Computed example of a mutant assay.
Amino acid sequence: MLHPDKGPISLKPWKKECRCVFPDCALHQGVTLTVTVNTSQTQVSEKLVYTNPGGEGTAAQNFSCFIYNVHFMNCTWAPGRAAPDDVQYFLYIRDSKKRERECPRYVSDSGTHVGCHLDDLSGLTSYNYFLVNGTSQTTGIQFFDSVLRSKQIERYSPPANISVQCKPSSCLIRWERPSAHFRLDDRDFQYELVIQRQRIEVPGDSQNQYIFPSLEPRPKHTVKIRTGDARDAQDPRWGAWSRPVEFGSEDPDAGVVHVYVLIVLGTLGCALALGCLVKRFLRRHSLFQPVPRIKDKLNDNHPTDLQDVWEEFPAGAGKAEHEEVVTVQEVDRAPVSG
């Protein structure tokens, strides 16, 4: 079989059987089947072209499905660009065990089915075949089909029980792994955190926690988390965001105000301490005045006075009981007459 997307697909029938069973694949683009028979004398080949009957551009388009909240699935599509006004579409789902069922609850737009809601996913297996065909009174409607793996169409719920515990230098953010419809390993998940417009991606094997650097005093912060599929780096298929969790101060400017207050108080404290030290130094300097030294007339380098310097003593100081006072008077010598 020559598939437009997968290329050649070859199968060899079992002995004495004249049929082949191919795995599920999309056929809405058409395929070419080639049967080759080898005999002892020659080789015979026959081609069978399988086409999608109906008017070109009438098939459903923009088809997609996603599983959400573990137990629910929505599928949506849009009418083909050339579909008539009276077109009606129908969805059929066949699992890997070949069990088939029609959509139990359609979503309509102006009377035309454009979606399907399922609240019972017990019949889904690891991969499933989806077929959307249509009917019209005016023209034939082409079908659309697709094979989807269940693990690749699930959108995970937000993490539960988000908590924040803060220390003076950081805050520890913890959460619980969300539930999934199929069994997955921790490494199959990845998380995206948004903290004050800052986006942070955390791998699933990080013990469901993240340490956010944040010094006290810290302003008010909010954190929200969503879950994605780590197995597809190009399209993680992010789920819905969790509710924001707040931590930090209620006042957004509290951190800045506290810093300013600390700076002002520190400046005032330093000024007071410096003033006390200066005042103490001046007081100590006034108590211990320098003692004047005795004037040495003999050794000082300046001319000495010819008069004797007498120390003044208070009256009665240093006198004995029988102290004789001698008065010396200088008398000019009279000239000798001749």
Score class of each variant (00 low, 15 high):
Q152H: 06
R174P: 00
K151Q: 10
D145F: 03
F212I: 00
K151C: 01
E192L: 05
E176K: 07
D185F: 05
T135D: 15
S170P: 00
I211V: 06
F144V: 02
L172Y: 14
D188F: 05
D205A: 06
N161R: 10
E216N: 03
H181Q: 12
V202R: 08
V194Q: 14
A160M: 07
F212A: 02
C171N: 11
L148D: 11
D145W: 05
T138I: 01
R177F: 07
A180F: 13
I141F: 08
L193K: 04
E201L: 11
I173E: 09
Q196E: 15
P219S: 12
I211K: 07
V223I: 07
K220Q: 10
I195P: 00
L193T: 07
P168H: 14
I162P: 00
P168R: 14
Y156F: 13
S150K: 01
Q209G: 03
S163N: 14
P203W: 15
I173H: 03
F143Q: 08
T139E: 14
E216W: 05
P219R: 06
G140D: 14
N133R: 02
A180N: 13
C166S: 10
E216P: 00
I162K: 02
S206Y: 12
P158N: 14
V194R: 08
G140T: 06
Q152C: 00
D188C: 02
K167G: 08
A180Y: 15
P159H: 13
K151M: 05
P213Y: 15
F144E: 07
T135G: 03
R177M: 07
T135H: 08
D186P: 01
I141P: 01
N161F: 12
F212L: 01
Q198D: 14
L215E: 15
R218H: 07
V147A: 04
P159I: 08
Y191R: 07
P203L: 11
R187P: 00
S157P: 00
N161S: 13
S163A: 12
H181R: 11
P217M: 08
F212N: 05
R187E: 15
V164A: 08
S146A: 09
S170T: 09
H181Y: 13
E201H: 11
T222Q: 08
P203A: 15
F182T: 10
K167M: 08
S170F: 12
Y210S: 03
S214M: 02
I200S: 03
E154Y: 08
P203C: 13
L215V: 06
R218S: 06
P178R: 13
N161K: 10
G204H: 10
Q198L: 05
Q207W: 09
K220S: 10
H181W: 10
F144D: 05
D188S: 09
S150I: 00
P219Y: 13
F189V: 07
R149D: 11
S214C: 04
Y210G: 02
I195L: 04
E154L: 01
V132E: 06
Q209W: 06
D205L: 01
T222Y: 11
R155I: 04
S136Y: 10
P219Q: 11
Y210A: 03
C171E: 14
E201Q: 15
D145L: 01
Q198I: 04
L184C: 04
T138Q: 10
D205R: 02
Q209R: 06
S136E: 12
T139M: 09
R149L: 00
P219M: 08
D205Y: 13
R149Q: 09
P213C: 12
T135N: 09
R155M: 10
I141E: 12
V132M: 05
D145P: 00
